[in-house]
């Protein structure tokens, strides 16, 4: 080595990045198998999601949509999406191969989303309830008529309908 550091001469990654001591090497065939597996998994999950989406569509088209059932299906879709996200991050982005502490620095801050989501959604819902209580114009003009309303005029619209 000459008397000063020349990045073009010592070209190994560990020379360019002195803070890194080794690099991940994975077996070629093993790796390809994993990618293939993950791709198939992601595709299958997406297909299931689409199927549930269409199912919800058909429930809505039916005579008396069961709000609870729809909500349950939507919950399933959310869980499937999180599973998809897990596979993308862990396999495609190689986070699963990193050191545990690194994984933690990514995952732990994401927990902030829990309260972020709960508070925002809860307050959005509360705003709707307040407006329905104090702003009759809003209530009358935006509340969907009960499904095929002609037969059951007096019925209150389902509370959950705003979320669908």
């Amino acid at each position: 080595m000459s008397n000063h550091y020349d990045p073009t001469k010592d070209i190994s990654p560990s020379a360019a990045y002195p803070e890194v001591s080794f690099h991940h090497h994975s077996d070629d065939a093993e790796f390809k198998r994993r990618v293939k597996k993950t791709t198939i998994l992601l595709s299958v999950i997406t297909i299931i999601e689409l199927a549930i989406g269409l199912l919800i569509y058909n429930i809505h088209k039916g005579d008396s949509p069961n709000a609870l059932l729809v909500l349950m299906f939507k919950g399933v879709v959310c869980i499937l999406t999180i599973a998809k996200a897990y596979y993308i991050v862990s396999v495609f982005m190689h986070l699963g191969d990193e050191i545990r502490n690194m994984i933690m620095t990514i995952v732990v801050p994401l927990l902030l989303f829990v309260w972020f989501i709960i508070a925002f959604i809860a307050d959005g819902n509360s705003y709707k309830n307040l407006r329905n209580k104090y702003d009759l114009h809003f209530k009358e003009t935006t509340t969907p008529a009960p499904h095929h309303s002609a037969e059951k005029p007096g019925e209150k619209p389902a509370e959950k309908s705003g979320k669908e």
Partner: peptide, 8 residues
């Protein structure tokens, strides 16, 4: 450059 080969 030594410490920060990366940047350079």
């Amino acid at each position: 450059n030594v410490q920060h080969g990366a940047a350079h």
